[in-house]
Design a protein around this nucleic acid. Structure first.
Lengths: 118, 118
DNA sequence: TATTGTTATACTCTATAACTATA
DNA sequence: TATAGTTATAGAGTATAACAATA
């Protein structure tokens, strides 16, 4: 397992679940289908994923109209998301510490350039 | 599918198969278990992988001692490996072209630093 | 008609267990 | 006893198909 996935696993989360929590935090009442479009998760896989988060009382579904549900964080989900973000920034710092200091700015610029154009 | 995997798929190869071809080219008569250790492929998965390459007449197994087989490229495997390497360098060039020219040297230095220390 | 959410299912990749043959 | 290779199988992760309810 890759290092970040291993750290998230220690929080009881799969990478996709951690991503969904962060998206919900940043976009209160976003619907499952919108999350799926944003993260590239097909709706057939969103359903059981959200059910798992709901069963752990991390998120709650609020009916928006008759067919779509807006997602919001429950208190436990809010604190867990905070821990997720700490894990991710710690992981990024670990990686970046291996890059010689003189290269770091250009390195990050390069990464972002590749990310944004893909 | 990620872009490089899609390009390799056009050659009828999975990423692991392409890696094995390149390792065999660089290490004639390397054994299956040594390839597995080098690439992190468990031996249970090496067996069918090599069988697929053998059935396509890309590699041949030569008995080394009674239990291990050295792998070598057949002519078709040699030419296909050349195409694999072209695909990979083209892919790397595509990615690197998105990085501003002034960042490229530092960017590659950073990538290598992270790779080597992991 | 199109969209949301759901279930069932299939496929790929990778891992473990158990085994044979050989060193 | 350890290693090379093989087979069978199980587990993730992700994909498609078909469907009900709603817009």
């Amino acid at each position: 397992m890759i290092a970040l996935a291993h750290r998230l696993d220690a929080l009881g989360l799969r990478p996709t679940e951690a991503s969904v929590l962060m998206v919900v935090e940043a976009n209160p009442n976003i619907t499952q289908s919108d999350i799926g479009r944003l993260l590239g998760i097909v709706s057939a896989n969103m359903a059981p994923l959200v059910s798992r988060l709901e069963e752990r009382d991390l998120v709650e579904r609020t009916p928006m109209d008759g067919r779509s549900h807006g997602l919001g964080l429950r208190p436990g989900g809010r604190s867990l998301t905070a821990r997720v973000k700490k894990v991710i920034t710690a992981h990024e710092r670990t990686l970046l510490s291996k890059v010689p200091a003189s290269c770091r700015t250009a390195f990050m610029t390069g990464l972002r350039a590749i990310w944004e154009e893909s």
